[in-house]
Amino acid sequence: MNGKKVAVGIVVGVVVVIGLIMFAVFAFFANNPTQQITEGPNEFTGQVIALEDERVLVVSGTDEELEGLTGEAVVDSGLPAIWFTVTIDQRDMIRVGDTVRVTHNQVAESYPGQSTAVTIEKQE
Protein backbone atom coordinates (compact mmCIF):
# COMPACT_ATOMS: atom_id res chain seq x y z
CA MET A 1 0.00 0.00 0.00
CA ASN A 2 2.83 2.40 0.87
CA GLY A 3 4.53 1.59 -2.43
CA LYS A 4 1.40 2.58 -4.38
CA LYS A 5 1.17 5.92 -2.53
CA VAL A 6 4.81 6.69 -3.28
CA ALA A 7 4.39 5.76 -6.97
CA VAL A 8 1.23 7.90 -7.28
CA GLY A 9 3.00 10.79 -5.51
CA ILE A 10 5.95 10.57 -7.91
CA VAL A 11 3.68 10.45 -10.97
CA VAL A 12 1.64 13.43 -9.72
CA GLY A 13 4.83 15.37 -8.97
CA VAL A 14 6.26 14.67 -12.44
CA VAL A 15 2.99 15.73 -14.11
CA VAL A 16 2.92 18.98 -12.09
CA VAL A 17 6.56 19.77 -12.95
CA ILE A 18 5.96 19.10 -16.68
CA GLY A 19 2.84 21.31 -16.56
CA LEU A 20 4.79 24.14 -14.92
CA ILE A 21 7.56 23.90 -17.50
CA MET A 22 5.04 23.97 -20.37
CA PHE A 23 3.26 26.96 -18.81
CA ALA A 24 6.56 28.84 -18.50
CA VAL A 25 7.52 28.12 -22.13
CA PHE A 26 4.14 29.21 -23.49
CA ALA A 27 4.14 32.34 -21.31
CA PHE A 28 7.62 33.26 -22.57
CA PHE A 29 6.71 32.93 -26.24
CA ALA A 30 3.35 34.68 -25.81
CA ASN A 31 4.95 37.78 -24.26
CA ASN A 32 8.32 37.77 -26.00
CA PRO A 33 8.76 41.11 -27.81
CA THR A 34 11.20 39.55 -30.29
CA GLN A 35 8.46 37.39 -31.77
CA GLN A 36 7.10 38.91 -34.97
CA ILE A 37 3.35 39.23 -34.92
CA THR A 38 1.67 39.11 -38.29
CA GLU A 39 -2.04 39.70 -38.30
CA GLY A 40 -2.54 39.67 -42.02
CA PRO A 41 -0.74 40.21 -45.27
CA ASN A 42 1.56 43.21 -45.54
CA GLU A 43 0.76 45.91 -48.09
CA PHE A 44 3.07 48.09 -50.17
CA THR A 45 1.94 50.75 -52.64
CA GLY A 46 4.24 52.25 -55.21
CA GLN A 47 5.24 52.55 -58.84
CA VAL A 48 6.58 49.71 -60.96
CA ILE A 49 10.14 50.72 -61.88
CA ALA A 50 11.48 47.50 -63.41
CA LEU A 51 10.17 44.15 -64.66
CA GLU A 52 12.21 40.98 -64.93
CA ASP A 53 11.19 37.40 -65.70
CA GLU A 54 9.63 36.58 -62.33
CA ARG A 55 10.32 39.79 -60.39
CA VAL A 56 8.87 43.27 -60.22
CA LEU A 57 10.58 46.25 -58.57
CA VAL A 58 8.08 48.54 -56.83
CA VAL A 59 9.22 51.86 -55.35
CA SER A 60 7.21 54.16 -53.11
CA GLY A 61 7.59 57.91 -53.41
CA THR A 62 6.15 61.09 -54.85
CA ASP A 63 5.80 61.60 -58.60
CA GLU A 64 8.73 64.05 -58.52
CA GLU A 65 10.98 61.54 -56.71
CA LEU A 66 10.07 58.73 -59.10
CA GLU A 67 10.33 60.70 -62.34
CA GLY A 68 13.03 59.19 -64.53
CA LEU A 69 14.05 56.69 -61.84
CA THR A 70 15.53 53.44 -63.19
CA GLY A 71 16.08 50.12 -61.47
CA GLU A 72 19.79 50.84 -61.15
CA ALA A 73 19.19 54.28 -59.62
CA VAL A 74 16.90 52.99 -56.87
CA VAL A 75 19.80 52.21 -54.52
CA ASP A 76 21.09 55.78 -54.83
CA SER A 77 17.60 57.23 -54.25
CA GLY A 78 17.10 55.62 -50.83
CA LEU A 79 13.35 55.42 -51.43
CA PRO A 80 11.33 52.49 -50.01
CA ALA A 81 11.68 49.73 -52.60
CA ILE A 82 10.91 46.00 -52.78
CA TRP A 83 11.59 43.35 -55.43
CA PHE A 84 8.51 41.13 -55.52
CA THR A 85 8.57 37.59 -56.88
CA VAL A 86 5.39 37.26 -58.95
CA THR A 87 3.53 34.73 -61.04
CA ILE A 88 3.49 35.05 -64.83
CA ASP A 89 -0.17 36.15 -64.73
CA GLN A 90 0.61 38.87 -62.17
CA ARG A 91 3.57 40.07 -64.22
CA ASP A 92 1.59 40.19 -67.45
CA MET A 93 -1.08 42.47 -65.97
CA ILE A 94 1.29 45.34 -65.09
CA ARG A 95 3.72 47.58 -66.96
CA VAL A 96 6.61 49.85 -65.97
CA GLY A 97 5.13 53.11 -64.69
CA ASP A 98 1.94 51.56 -63.26
CA THR A 99 1.01 52.38 -59.69
CA VAL A 100 0.21 49.17 -57.81
CA ARG A 101 -0.78 47.99 -54.35
CA VAL A 102 0.89 44.70 -53.46
CA THR A 103 -0.04 42.41 -50.60
CA HIS A 104 2.95 40.28 -49.76
CA ASN A 105 4.75 37.98 -47.36
CA GLN A 106 7.60 38.95 -45.07
CA VAL A 107 10.30 41.17 -46.52
CA ALA A 108 13.94 40.09 -46.51
CA GLU A 109 16.20 42.65 -44.88
CA SER A 110 18.13 43.94 -47.85
CA TYR A 111 17.92 47.01 -50.01
CA PRO A 112 15.86 46.90 -52.04
CA GLY A 113 13.82 44.48 -49.94
CA GLN A 114 12.70 41.14 -51.34
CA SER A 115 9.36 39.43 -50.87
CA THR A 116 6.76 37.28 -52.62
CA ALA A 117 3.63 39.00 -53.90
CA VAL A 118 0.33 37.48 -52.86
CA THR A 119 -1.83 39.91 -54.86
CA ILE A 120 -1.15 42.89 -57.11
CA GLU A 121 -3.80 45.52 -57.85
CA LYS A 122 -3.34 48.36 -60.32
CA GLN A 123 -4.25 51.73 -58.84
CA GLU A 124 -5.74 54.64 -60.78
Score class of each variant (00 low, 15 high):
residue 10 I to D: 12
residue 78 G to P: 05
residue 52 E to L: 06
residue 54 E to W: 11
residue 87 T to W: 10
residue 60 S to L: 05
residue 51 L to S: 03
residue 64 E to C: 00
residue 80 P to E: 02
residue 76 D to Q: 07
residue 86 V to W: 02
residue 121 E to H: 08
residue 66 L to A: 05
residue 65 E to C: 02
residue 49 I to L: 04
residue 118 V to T: 13
residue 81 A to W: 00
residue 18 I to E: 10
residue 124 E to F: 07
residue 5 K to Y: 12
residue 8 V to G: 02
residue 10 I to V: 15
residue 105 N to Q: 12
residue 114 Q to E: 14
residue 56 V to S: 03
residue 55 R to G: 07
residue 115 S to R: 09
residue 14 V to F: 15
residue 2 N to W: 11
residue 59 V to R: 02
residue 30 A to D: 13
residue 56 V to N: 01
residue 20 L to I: 13
residue 92 D to R: 14
residue 77 S to N: 01
residue 29 F to T: 09
residue 84 F to K: 03
residue 76 D to Y: 07
residue 50 A to S: 10
residue 20 L to E: 10
residue 21 I to Y: 12
residue 14 V to P: 06
residue 76 D to F: 04
residue 75 V to N: 06
residue 41 P to V: 07
residue 75 V to W: 02
residue 66 L to G: 00
residue 104 H to L: 10
residue 54 E to F: 15
residue 67 E to M: 03
residue 58 V to H: 04
residue 55 R to L: 15
residue 59 V to Q: 01
residue 13 G to Q: 09
residue 71 G to E: 08
residue 19 G to R: 04
residue 46 G to D: 00
residue 53 D to L: 14
residue 106 Q to K: 14
residue 54 E to Y: 13
residue 47 Q to N: 04
residue 105 N to E: 10
residue 98 D to Q: 08
residue 50 A to L: 12
residue 22 M to D: 09
residue 49 I to F: 01
residue 110 S to N: 05
residue 108 A to S: 11
residue 118 V to A: 11
residue 65 E to Y: 00
residue 10 I to N: 09
residue 15 V to C: 11
residue 27 A to C: 07
residue 105 N to S: 12
residue 120 I to A: 00
residue 12 V to M: 11
residue 17 V to K: 03
residue 107 V to E: 08
residue 28 F to Q: 10
residue 13 G to M: 04
residue 23 F to L: 14
residue 74 V to C: 02
residue 89 D to M: 09
residue 20 L to M: 11
residue 5 K to E: 15
residue 122 K to V: 13
residue 7 A to E: 09
residue 85 T to Y: 15
residue 65 E to A: 06
residue 12 V to I: 14
residue 45 T to N: 06
residue 63 D to Q: 14
residue 77 S to V: 00
residue 52 E to I: 08
residue 96 V to G: 05
residue 101 R to Q: 07
residue 32 N to D: 15
residue 17 V to N: 03
residue 18 I to Y: 12
residue 25 V to W: 08
residue 111 Y to H: 08
residue 123 Q to Y: 08
residue 123 Q to T: 12
residue 48 V to R: 02
residue 61 G to P: 00
residue 86 V to A: 06
residue 91 R to N: 11
residue 82 I to A: 00
residue 2 N to F: 12
residue 34 T to E: 11
residue 98 D to T: 06
residue 108 A to H: 05
residue 104 H to C: 09
residue 55 R to I: 12
residue 112 P to A: 01
residue 121 E to C: 00
residue 124 E to Q: 14
residue 117 A to M: 05
residue 97 G to W: 11
residue 48 V to P: 01
residue 37 I to W: 12
residue 96 V to N: 11
residue 96 V to C: 05
residue 44 F to D: 01
residue 54 E to R: 14
residue 66 L to W: 08
residue 67 E to P: 01
residue 4 K to G: 09
residue 88 I to A: 15
residue 111 Y to C: 03
residue 40 G to C: 06
residue 58 V to D: 04
residue 111 Y to Q: 00
residue 50 A to E: 15
residue 100 V to K: 03
residue 11 V to Q: 08
residue 45 T to H: 05
residue 85 T to Q: 11
